[in-house]
């Protein structure tokens, strides 16, 4: 699963956020989703999608060594994470999410649930699908 974006197709529906929180937290709570949708209205009128591209910079800056890579996906060890926020600062995609009820940041683990429910192909799997 290589998550890729075609932002021009995003209609801002946030279904990606709902399924992300349901799948990864067992909660219906888009504020706990590892994907952010930012609207740019009234001008120029489009949506921006912020999601991790597994670049690994978060792991490189983590002072607690709480972020580890397996099979190309970086995961946060919640036990080790001190909630210092260094990774949030460092993320070039601004894709690490903070939630008041969670100590550790919320980060995409490339589960692909958002891809499955993005009818518009705004979030897609570059391993299996060409850009629309």
């Amino acid at each position: 699963m290589k998550i890729a974006l075609n932002e021009a197709r995003c209609s801002g529906c946030r279904t990606c956020q709902v399924i992300c929180s349901l799948h990864n937290f067992n909660e219906n709570n888009p504020k706990k989703a590892a994907v952010k949708i930012v609207g740019h209205f009234p001008t120029p009128g489009h949506y921006e999608i912020k999601i991790c591209d597994q670049c690994g910079l978060c792991a490189a800056v983590c002072p607690a060594e709480a972020i580890k890579e397996t099979d190309g996906v970086y995961r946060i060890d919640k036990e080790k994470c001190t909630g210092c926020g260094e990774c949030i600062e460092a993320c070039p995609s601004e894709a690490m999410v903070q939630h008041p009820a969670e100590k550790a940041p919320i980060k995409c683990v490339a589960c692909g649930q958002c891809v499955e429910l993005c009818q518009r192909g705004a979030i897609y799997d570059a391993d299996t699908r060409e850009v629309q």
Partner: peptide
């Protein structure tokens, strides 16, 4: 310029 949806649409 864009197709715009409501929540969950």
């Amino acid at each position: 310029v864009n197709d715009k949806g409501c929540f969950g649409c």
